[in-house]
Design a protein around this nucleic acid. Structure first.
Lengths: 131, 131
DNA sequence: ATTAAATTAGGAATTATTCCTAATTTTAGA
DNA sequence: TCTAAAATTAGGAATAATTCCTAATTTAAT
């Protein structure tokens, strides 16, 4: 199979169990709890492999470390532009939007059902009002 | 007004004239052509200020440096997950999607009309077939 | 079993970005 | 216009996240 090292299996399972959109560092900490021999470079390397294999998704952040997410089911992310908090939402790109995009881009790209929408969360909205 | 330093004005104009989704480094290089006295820290600092002011947008990249874009008109981005190429497309979040999101998130976040959709561009798709 | 390929730990190196400081520029008010 | 306060700058040091390097080990394939 694809995950033939003990380390990779542990790393994948840790990510599978975390529902908090963890950073690589946070994943490393959990992995370390399971097996303290696993090095940080192994965690980073395997995270990248798992992203390439489509087992997990990377959420690029406007600032700070990127976050990762096990692909439990189709869902997408909304990220607060100010604090980076990540929210899940369920939405599949509808045919019409897919067609709009394909015609605008002359079919130059194949969508991967991975959408990130930005916003400003209520907490950040409130604190900017105070200023 | 908001842009009261000569440097910030030059930086904004440089970004305005670039239609290539440049990195901070690429912006710095152009700025340096205009005025070689402007330092890299000034470019980075002002890029962040311009993003905060909503004059330009940051496009968080899956790998490599983030990219920036002058906000000429409402548009959004599709990013190739493999090579990072950025494509523009014109699309405003339709009411229905906005409502779906708001109800799912219990109005916890205000959308900022800034969407990133991932995909795999034809070049990367072709080269992965060869493998 | 044997060999080749893949993976690992650990730490060094890299890269992008932010931070620091003293000097300069800009702004706002009298 | 003059002056004081606030904002900004250049330049380089510091930071933080991630990737790279290497020899040793593990896994896979025959």
């Amino acid at each position: 199979m694809n995950n033939y090292s003990k380390q990779r299996e542990i790393i994948l399972n840790v990510i599978k169990d975390m529902h908090t959109h963890p950073t690589a560092e946070e994943i490393y900490e959990k992995v370390h709890d399971v097996d303290e021999k696993i090095s940080k470079s192994t965690v980073y390397r395997n995270i990248n492999i798992l992203v390439d294999n489509g087992k997990i998704r990377k959420i690029s952040m406007p600032s700070g470390s990127d976050r990762y997410d096990y692909f439990h089911k189709i869902h997408n992310h909304i990220v607060c532009e100010k604090c980076g908090k990540v929210f899940d939402f369920n939405f599949e790109i509808p045919k019409e939007l897919r067609e709009v995009i394909n015609s605008q881009l002359h079919n130059k790209i194949t969508l991967t059902d991975n959408i990130k929408i930005n916003g400003i969360c209520n907490d950040c909205m409130d604190s900017s009002k105070i200023k």
